[in-house]
Amino acid sequence: MIHIHIERKTYPASGRAESHTAIAGLELHLEEHEFVCLVGPSGCGKTTLLNLIAGLDRDFQGTIHLSKAEAPRLGYVFQEPRLLPWRTVRENLELALPPRRDPVVIDELLTLTGLTAFQHTYPQRLSLGMSRRVALARAFAVEPDLLLMDEPFVSLDTPTAEKMRRLLADLWQRRPHTVLFVTHDLREALELADRIVFLTPPPSRVAREVTLPRSPRLRSPEVVETLYRRLAPK
């Protein structure tokens, strides 16, 4: 069980920008192996929230409890792939691998993501879609207690994004880690999520939650459309 309680996250004034409160009174719980999508308008502090959970930003009031483990392992798929350009695809995966983890998992993930032929390629020679697949493989390689994803398929063309979602659903079927997936696209959330959490505009907190019947794979376009009509804000 993961508990997230952000009492307040405020950015101090700097230069001409006034101080502003990004998050206030946000409460979020995640069950183990749950796929939760966080949906909200852009600029509502979704990335801020993920950075707080990842421990990249500790300047906030509240508590974040990730797991019983002393040091829970995180996977984070950022908006940009954030691969080391001077390391090959394979080296990028190997570097993220925790010590004592069997490197065979890398071969497996390379196969699943269709990157085996590119394992010795430097990231700059890859397309954006392929780089994103590497970032996805890296996040799964660490077997995270919690997998954070920050609009990981943004700025891909529609068919590629669709393929990526199918790949994600596929990977997640094999290794159902707890996922917190941030998106501004409700349709994307409807395809993937067990539960959708809507955020308010800033200072953000949870507006409402919708639990969906668990689906073994990506929900079909028809189902997504029906759900969308029911859930989309009028």
């Binding site: 990249l56 995180l74 940009e80 954030r82 080391l84 570097l95």
Partner: peptide, 20 residues
């Protein structure tokens, strides 16, 4: 961004220095 990535994936001091 890369430094944050190294932190999340727990590269540690030496790996971060050498590879990032």
């Amino acid at each position: 961004g890369l430094l944050e990535m190294a932190r999340v994936y727990r590269f540690g001091t030496w790996k971060t220095l050498r590879h990032v």
